[in-house]
Amino acid sequence: MSDLSKNDIERATFAFSIYDFDGSGKIDAFNLGDVLRALNSNPTLATIEKLGGTKKKGEKQLSLEEFLPIYSQAKKDKDQGCYEDFLECLKLYDKNENGLMLGAELTHTLLALGEKLEDKEVEEVVKDCMDPEDDDGMIPYAPFLKKVMV
């Protein structure tokens, strides 16, 4: 934890407090990924589980003292990817190099590649983040990615 700056600790404490829903000084480990993402981290589900997150609510509680080393480790994790990395991946589907890709290809990518999403999760992401398809079924992928990464 000594590698966290004073500012990092203040930000982590604030984010932690938001997810301390009952004021007990603890958060549900189910929300670990949400807290880390609120701190501009982008951990995969596997990373969250490795760091102590749970898949079900109520299984485990984390105190701030337990959370800070987890946050420190998440900050060090280089296997997260950033906007530019994901943008480069989506450019592979941009056959005309005009910032557009088929909406169907994006949906397929979310379902089939990397850390695969369930149908319901893809529907929610598409509904919330994807611009409407044009007459050819194309969507601008950069705005989609920005919405997803926020």
Score class of each variant (00 low, 15 high):
residue 127 K to I: 07
residue 98 N to M: 00
residue 46 A to I: 07
residue 83 Y to D: 01
residue 136 D to Y: 11
residue 97 E to H: 10
residue 120 K to H: 13
residue 132 P to K: 14
residue 7 N to G: 08
residue 34 D to G: 10
residue 138 M to Q: 12
residue 73 Q to D: 03
residue 82 C to D: 14
residue 41 S to C: 14
residue 140 P to T: 07
residue 35 V to S: 01
residue 34 D to M: 13
residue 65 E to G: 03
residue 110 L to R: 06
residue 53 G to Q: 01
residue 78 K to I: 09
residue 32 L to W: 07
residue 11 R to D: 12
residue 52 G to M: 03
residue 13 T to Q: 09
residue 97 E to T: 00
residue 35 V to Q: 00
residue 66 E to I: 01
residue 96 N to M: 06
residue 80 Q to V: 04
residue 131 D to E: 15
residue 99 G to I: 00
residue 21 F to S: 10
residue 116 K to G: 10
residue 43 P to V: 04
residue 92 L to T: 01
residue 70 I to N: 04
residue 139 I to R: 12
residue 130 M to I: 07
residue 142 A to H: 11
residue 11 R to K: 15
residue 31 N to A: 13
residue 98 N to P: 04
residue 69 P to R: 06
residue 67 F to H: 02
residue 117 L to Y: 13
residue 133 E to R: 13
residue 88 E to A: 14
residue 87 L to K: 15
residue 127 K to T: 11
residue 6 K to V: 13
residue 57 K to G: 09
residue 128 D to Q: 13
residue 94 D to L: 00
residue 35 V to P: 02
residue 25 G to K: 06
residue 16 F to P: 00
residue 43 P to N: 06
residue 125 V to Q: 09
residue 96 N to G: 05
residue 117 L to P: 07
residue 140 P to S: 12
residue 129 C to L: 07
residue 126 V to T: 12
residue 128 D to K: 15
residue 146 K to E: 13
residue 26 K to A: 04
residue 15 A to C: 09
residue 47 T to N: 11
residue 129 C to S: 14
residue 75 K to Q: 15
residue 59 E to R: 11
residue 20 D to N: 05
residue 119 D to S: 12
residue 118 E to F: 10
residue 118 E to W: 09
residue 30 F to R: 11
residue 124 E to L: 14
residue 42 N to H: 13
residue 20 D to R: 01
residue 64 L to N: 02
residue 134 D to I: 06
residue 128 D to S: 15
residue 18 I to T: 08
residue 130 M to H: 10
residue 85 D to H: 10
residue 69 P to L: 01
residue 45 L to N: 14
residue 96 N to V: 04
residue 36 L to E: 00
residue 113 L to G: 08
residue 58 G to W: 01
residue 53 G to L: 01
residue 75 K to G: 06
residue 103 G to P: 04
residue 13 T to P: 07
residue 123 E to G: 10
residue 109 T to F: 11
residue 134 D to E: 02
residue 37 R to A: 06
residue 108 H to N: 13
residue 123 E to F: 12
